[in-house]
Amino acid sequence: MKRCELGFPQHRSARNWLDGCLRIVIAVQCFGLAGRYLFSPNERESDVFEWLQFDFHWPEPLVQSIDNAGAWLTLAAGLLLCVAGIVRPRMDPESMLGRSLRWLDGTAALWIAVWVFTMAVAHRMRATLYADLTFAEDAVRYVAPLALLLLINRPTRRLEIERGGFQAERAAVILLMLAAAATFAAHGYKAIECYGPFMDLVLLSDMRWTQFYPSESTVQRSLVAIGVVDLLVAILLVVARWPAVAFYMAVWGGVAAASRMTAFGFSAWPETLLRAANGGVPLAILGYWIVSRRQRSVQPETTASPDTSTPHQCETP
C-alpha cells in the first residue's frame, strides 16, 4: 500500500487541485447552508438563533436579523470563493486589483469558517444529544475554509523560493486530514451508539427505494459495523495516509450526505449539500495526493523548478 508523505507537495497542479476542490466543496456547502436557513420551503433558523433567543433571551427580531445576515453572508462568501477561484489565476497577483481580490478571497474564507464554527459552538451550547461531539462532527465544515485561507494567503512564488518551503500547503493538508478524521470518528461513534436519526436514514431510505424492510436489530448491527469502519478509516487517514482510505472516505462521505435525500426526498437537498465537505474534504486530500504523485512521475526529479524544489513522495511503508 502506498503511503503519501504529508508535506511539501511542490507541484502547482496539485496545489491547484486542492485549491479548486476546496472552493467547490465550500461553495456547495454554503449553498446548502443557505438552502436550509433561507430558501427551502422548510427553512429554519440556525442554532445561533436558538442559542441567543432561548438561552440568552435576546429579542427575537435582533436574533433573526443576525441569523439571516449570517446565512446571506455565508452564501455571498461561497459565491465569491468561486468567482475568485476563476478570476485570480488570470490576474497579476501583485497588482492592486489582484491584491484586493486576494484580500476579499481570504476574508470570504475566513467568514465562512467563523460562521460555521459559531453555529457549531451554538449547537454545542444547546446541549442536545451528542452535543459534545459537535466540534468534531462539524470539523470538515469549518476547517475546509480555514485550509483554503492558508492556501490563499500562502506566500507568492517569489517568497516561496526565498523561504524554501511550502508550510502553508503542508499545514492545510494536515488540517484537512485531522478534520476529516474527526468528522468520521464522531459519526462513527454515533453509529456505534445506534443514533436514532442514523437508523432512520437507513430504514426510511430502504422504505422509499429498496424495500428490503430489514429489522431494527439488523440495522443496528449494520450501524455498528459502519461505525467501526468509520473509526478505523479516521485513524488510518492520519496514521497511514493511504490513498485508498481517502477514497473510501470520499465515497462514504458522499453516500452519507446523499442519504438525507434518499430518506426524506428531494426537499432535503440542503441537508445533503450542507454535508458536501464530509466527502469533499477526503476527496480534496485524495486528489492532492494523486496529482502530486502523477506530477512527480512526469517531471524528472532533477528539474529544479521552484515548484519541485523538494521532492514529494509516495512511498511503500
Binding site: R44, D200, A263
Partner: peptide
C-alpha cells in the same frame, strides 16, 4: 408539520 424549523422524521414514519 412545524410552524418553524423543518419536519421531523415522523413525517415519513
Amino acid at each position: 408539520y412545524p410552524a418553524v424549523k423543518g419536519p421531523g422524521a415522523g413525517l415519513q414514519s
